[in-house]
């Protein structure tokens, strides 16, 4: 019976076991929407839970063993590490502030004064620095900020100062400069994204009502762009605490942030301590996100319908 037959003129849609398996009514296709969830669980929830669990394990000579102790936390809070951590938070907060003061006006300017068609292109320019590895970008600051670097040469050459300024590098200031340079684009992006929900008319309305620039910023623009500013703030703040490259390359011998602390703990084979520090950062991040969401509904940033 190898003859093709049609029964009663009805034609079966083409099907094979494979396509049935993928797209059939009971196929695997219906699980496609769960993929992101699976991804989130595998690469976020599980590692984070492991971090928490390992942070209370007992330390052994070269690894750790199951247990329940807050030894790592006691170690962290009872040592100079905690002070270093606080100092990193402070320097990170300063970086956020500087990035806001420098970056947010750029976002406002692009939104208010660049022709609508060119706005996205202008913002895209800020992506260019990310085409270069962060290590190289930060390293490249050394010959610029050093005692005999480009910046000091320029200042001396222009007669503004007589002796080179040594505060630009291997100091907490150096770390702030590095962080601002690295993370300024995020303030511009997020600020602009939030500003997109601000109609361009608003600037003229404010002009017409007699609102000066500072009042307009304070009472209209910043409140409207707050979700974006907050998103950028959290991002820069957490990175400032966590990315060890910047203090390592620009901060000099004493410069330490949470990233450095974790790295040192791992070098010393104190894994529970490394996990504990990571867990503390995680808690800070989650708390900031929660507060931000509670204040401004951060999902607005990505959903034009909610604006």
């Amino acid at each position: 019976m190898s003859q093709p037959t049609t029964t009663g003129g009805r034609r079966q849609p083409a099907s094979s076991p494979l396509s049935d398996l993928l797209t059939g009514e009971r196929g695997l296709g219906r699980y496609a929407f769960y993929l992101p969830l699976a991804f989130l669980i595998a690469f976020f929830v599980v590692p984070m839970l492991l971090t928490l669990v390992w942070s209370v394990f007992e330390r052994t000579n070269f690894w750790m063993e199951p247990g329940f102790t807050f030894g790592a936390y006691a170690d962290f809070f009872g040592s100079a590490r905690f002070e270093n951590f606080l100092r990193a938070m402070k320097s990170s907060a300063i970086s956020v502030l500087v990035a806001f003061v420098l970056g947010f006006p750029i976002a406002v300017f692009v939104r208010s004064s660049v022709p609508e068609k060119a706005q996205h292109k202008a913002i895209l320019l800020f992506i260019l620095p990310f085409m270069i590895s962060e290590v190289i970008r930060i390293f490249a600051l050394r010959p610029i900020l050093g005692r005999h670097g480009v910046l000091n040469d320029a200042l001396i050459g222009s007669g503004l100062i007589d002796d080179p300024i040594s505060i630009f590098i291997y100091t907490p200031t150096g770390v702030v400069i590095g962080e601002v340079m690295s993370y300024l684009p995020f303030m511009v992006f997020c600020g602009f994204l939030a500003m997109e929900s601000v109609p361009r008319y608003i600037f003229e309305v404010c002009d017409d009502l007699g609102s000066d620039t500072l009042t307009t910023l304070r009472r209209v623009i910043v409140p409207l762009a707050a979700p974006g500013i907050l998103a950028a703030t959290i991002f820069i703040f957490i990175n400032g605490i966590g990315v060890f490259l910047i203090p390592d390359i620009l901060g000099g011998p004493g410069a330490v942030n949470a990233g450095t602390l974790v790295l040192n703990a791992i070098s010393a084979l104190d894994f529970p301590l490394a996990m504990a520090i990571a867990a503390i950062m995680l808690v800070i991040l989650m708390a900031l996100l929660l507060i931000g969401h509670w204040l401004f509904d951060l999902t607005k940033l990505l959903d034009p319908a909610k604006r």
């Binding site: 929900s197 008319y201 608003i202 003229e204 002009d207 009502l209 007699g210 409207l224 604006r307």
Partner: peptide, 29 residues
Amino acid sequence: APDKRSTSMVFQSYALFPHMTVEENVAYG
């Protein structure tokens, strides 16, 4: 400048401050 003239403008649309109430909008000036 616009605010130094005795003129006020009503714009096409979407020109209210979205984060303020009606009262705050009218009171702004």
